[in-house]
């Protein structure tokens, strides 16, 4: 009776490709991922190689700039383009790992609190409140002071601290989904609790989960940069954008590009992730809603 309608997949394709923000975000992300994965092939120089004879070379568009170092060199004569490309690795690695760790913790807690309610809900809400009372940077400071900073420590600290938004959003979404008839209908067809949770509730709150995940990933990348800037994150000589900004701050007035280049890269990556998150929400929103 509605055979003339385009198929489900065709409508979805149309919505995705028609979304400018989503496509822009995906395009930037693809470039960032390519940089991260193929860094050794793309980078013109070794990011750790110091050429003290060529210190503080400005980018190619400035006077004194040379095509040998398109984005110039830093105070130790390391090629800035190569370091920026390698920096994408650290940012994306941290963003993804933190999102996975915190997402797993937060989603589990939110699902349990929202679905079971009652005491479980009270317990989870208490843990979330307790967690929100702890400032992330201060905790990170304390942990780094105790065990020293490294990539793994940053991932662990952020992953174990940043699940709060996952828990809060997933709890609210689950409460909503739990009251739907299809949950009762699934129980009426003999589905177990775990099956109802993972098979019925989770797929329906997936759009919200994806949006939170992207926002948290972007915020984790920014936090890593902030921690590295403070000297609490990844340690030199690893090329991290936050660390590059930190090292450049002494030269800010004379070599502005040193702070602008990693800053732009960081801003673009975070923007792209947020665009993708928003885009997915827009594309998924009409889905399944009658």
């Amino acid at each position: 009776m509605d055979a003339a309608l385009p198929t489900h997949a065709a409508m979805l394709r149309g919505r995705i490709f028609g979304h400018v923000g989503l496509m822009t975000g995906i395009a930037i992300l693809v470039v960032a991922f390519a940089c991260a994965i193929f860094a050794p092939l793309l980078a013109p120089h070794d990011p750790y190689f110091q050429d003290l004879a060529a210190r503080l070379v400005p980018p190619v568009w400035q006077p004194r700039g040379t095509w040998l170092h398109p984005l110039g060199t830093d105070n130790l004569g390391r090629d800035y383009l190569s370091r920026t490309i390698y920096g994408a690795r650290v940012s994306l690695l941290i963003g993804f790992s933190v999102m996975l760790v915190s997402g797993l913790i937060g989603t589990t807690m939110g699902l349990a609190a929202g679905y079971f309610g009652g005491r479980t809900d009270m317990a989870v809400s208490f843990i979330v409140t307790a967690r929100l009372a702890m400032p992330v940077v201060l905790v990170a400071l304390a942990v780094v002071a105790l065990v020293g900073g490294s990539l793994v420590v940053v991932i662990a600290v952020l992953g174990l601290l940043k699940w709060d938004r996952f828990a809060v959003v997933m709890r609210a979404a689950t409460q909503q989904a739990r009251a739907q008839d299809y949950v009762a209908a699934a129980k009426a067809t003999g589905a177990s609790t775990l099956r109802v949770l993972l098979g019925e509730v989770l797929p329906n709150i997936l759009p919200q989960l994806v949006v939170v995940a992207t926002l948290e990933m972007a915020s984790a990348i920014l936090l890593e940069a902030a921690l590295s800037f403070l000297g609490l994150g990844v340690q030199p000589p690893l090329p991290s954008w936050g660390l590059m900004i930190s090292e450049a701050k002494a030269y800010m007035f004379f070599s502005f590009w040193m702070i602008a280049i990693p800053g732009t890269a960081l801003g673009l990556l975070v923007l792209a992730i947020n665009l993708v998150g928003d885009g997915i929400r827009d594309v998924a929103a009409p889905e399944g809603r009658a």
Binding site: Q180, D181, Y182, A184, A185, A186, A188, E200, P203, N204, L206, E287, G288, R289, A290
Partner: peptide, 11 residues
């Protein structure tokens, strides 16, 4: 169920 609009899982 009473409400066929909500008793099927939209996902």
């Amino acid at each position: 169920f009473q409400e066929p609009m909500t008793a099927l899982n939209p996902a």
